[in-house]
Design a protein around this nucleic acid. Structure first.
Lengths: 183, 183, 183, 183
DNA sequence: TCATAAACGAGACGGTACGTCTCGTCTTTAC
DNA sequence: GTAAAGACGAGACGTACCGTCTCGTTTATGA
């Protein structure tokens, strides 16, 4: 029996679609970007997109994960501050904001959100909890502090300034240190 | 001299529409609530809604402002903690979340967002800056910390627990105190 | 109790509204002309229009009658040919076409049509029947021949040429003469 | 090589929509029939209707052409009278009247009318001119005489009686014979 | 080599919502 | 009591988008 009966999926397609999704959504916003737009921009038929992702929301969620995957990640960070700073850096990128807002807006489907939480927040929280001795709830709060604040700032169509990122990082690091002591 | 030529707008309409908008959006989400639904629920023709608000997004933004107006506001608070706690309380309400998320996610129209900033964040920031001796930027950061974090938490379809609100309030108060000293 | 209680009807209103109706409908067509347009163009409130005519169709019908009244009419014509020629002349005017087409095409209201028939076709038919010794049915056919043909020609957005009018007149006169003899 | 890329249009749809359009417009009139009604009656989504015809007017024009196509047509008629009689018969049908009036009312768009002229009047005029030796202008006049008169009579919400049709046919045949001789 | 199986492009389709446009009515103030 | 101004209800219009479907065509594997 063959694992791969039939015509194999063309190589570059997912890459092209994800990139187009990121670019268009980052530029025009989730709502203003139609799936036809994305398909056209990536030179692919709409059918093909739907064969790989089950909805527009799922595609954008995948694009978001893909983009976050570009970043080094929390693994192997030498200290707490670097870990938090990495998160703040990731959450400062405008493309990430646009994608994330889109996913949050596609709200009825809570599966998507759960999956995002599972794939992004959970690992971060786990790493923080195990690596730095804080309880999971505090770690989750730290995550939401960083991402929520930066996302909200950018959603207000204000640029995210460096000072905000630094202040936020300091604050959250302080919070986590306190939590560790306090426990 | 006529301040009001022509038939006056019927009294209860705006109230009924705004209430219906809040209720439906809070229950079903922005996307799943159509303007026809809102009009029907408030016993008004769709035309009438569009005569008063220029789009669905504008209506929901107005509904949000209206709801926030219900809250006592920062005026006359006796201390910094109470001020921040008020904001955290407001930002913890699920109806506020649904409305805000709708406005942020579903519209490219940056006018709407600017207006929201002007009408909600600006007064708070001004009050904080003048009343508690912090610079405007720090006050804005405090606002975004509180609202952004709580909104993001709730958008992840997790309930906002009391501890989060308390921790957040403490944290932000601490931040503001530091900023005041530091200056 | 005064005979003239209340504000008297302003003098020129009906005139202005009818003229505006003719002008706009002749230029843009019945459908493309809204009652608000007519009211605006005649410097009158829409309410005022509806106080005098019960619908858009009725207004346009009135405007049509008004325009036909401008014409000398059938009365006192010295011979059959002149009578028919007068009708053909009236039915050749593009403003009459636009108005008539509007009334015929855009309204299910058969009262309007009956009234038009009563006020325009009936007198003509009566005059023809009594003056030239043809039966009413033949006279009616003659009317429809002239008006129907010219209206249809112009509705096809083709100009009504002089030859058509002459041919038509000859034809109808011939028809009527035959009918008289035949009886 | 694919003559038809993509999913083919479903077979019965145009048929069903045109039939529904004829039925509803003939029964209720152009104005009182909405496109949603037509779509619903033919078991098709409104979108699908708009994919095939660009407006309500265009759809009704197509329905009219379709109905006229049902008729035997002028081809192969053995004598002039039969030809004219065929036209008079076609122009006596109430469904044809309702459709035609609708198209004429949708007036601003003169493309529709031109197309109708091209597809219906032009062939008839050509056949008449070539087959019976009259000039095109006379043939066109004959066409307008028949159709215009009958349409106008029926638009006056009077039934079209047999005598009118016969008289009209005689008259037009006479006219054409004269034109042939006269030339 | 030839059948089977899946991917792909293209576009039709159903359904839902949007925001606009009229018509004709209703409700005020001003004259 | 008429006029002006404009809100209101009702409902059609045409557009946009989503996600599904149905084809014809291409590209692999396995008998």
């Amino acid at each position: 029996m063959s694992r791969t009966a039939g015509r194999p999926r063309r190589a570059g397609i997912s890459r092209a679609v994800l990139d187009a999704a990121v670019e268009l959504v980052a530029r025009d916003g989730y709502r203003a970007t139609s799936l036809d737009d994305i398909a056209r921009a990536s030179g692919v038929a709409k059918t093909t997109v739907y064969r790989r992702w089950e909805s527009k929301g799922a595609l954008v969620a995948a694009a978001l994960l893909d983009r976050l995957g570009d970043l080094p990640g929390v693994t192997g960070e030498s200290d707490l501050r670097a870990t938090v700073a990495w998160l703040a850096g990731a959450a400062s990128r405008p493309d990430v904001h646009a994608l994330l807002l889109g996913v949050l807006a596609e709200t009825t489907d809570s599966e998507l959100r759960s999956e995002l939480r599972a794939q992004v927040r959970a690992p971060f929280v786990a790493a923080l909890a195990q690596g730095w001795g804080v309880d999971a709830e505090s770690a989750a709060t730290a995550f939401d502090l960083v991402v929520g604040t930066l996302l909200f700032r950018s959603a207000g169509s204000e640029p995210v300034e460096r000072r905000l990122v630094t202040d936020l990082t300091d604050l959250v690091v302080g919070y986590l240190v306190d939590q560790r002591r306090g426990t």
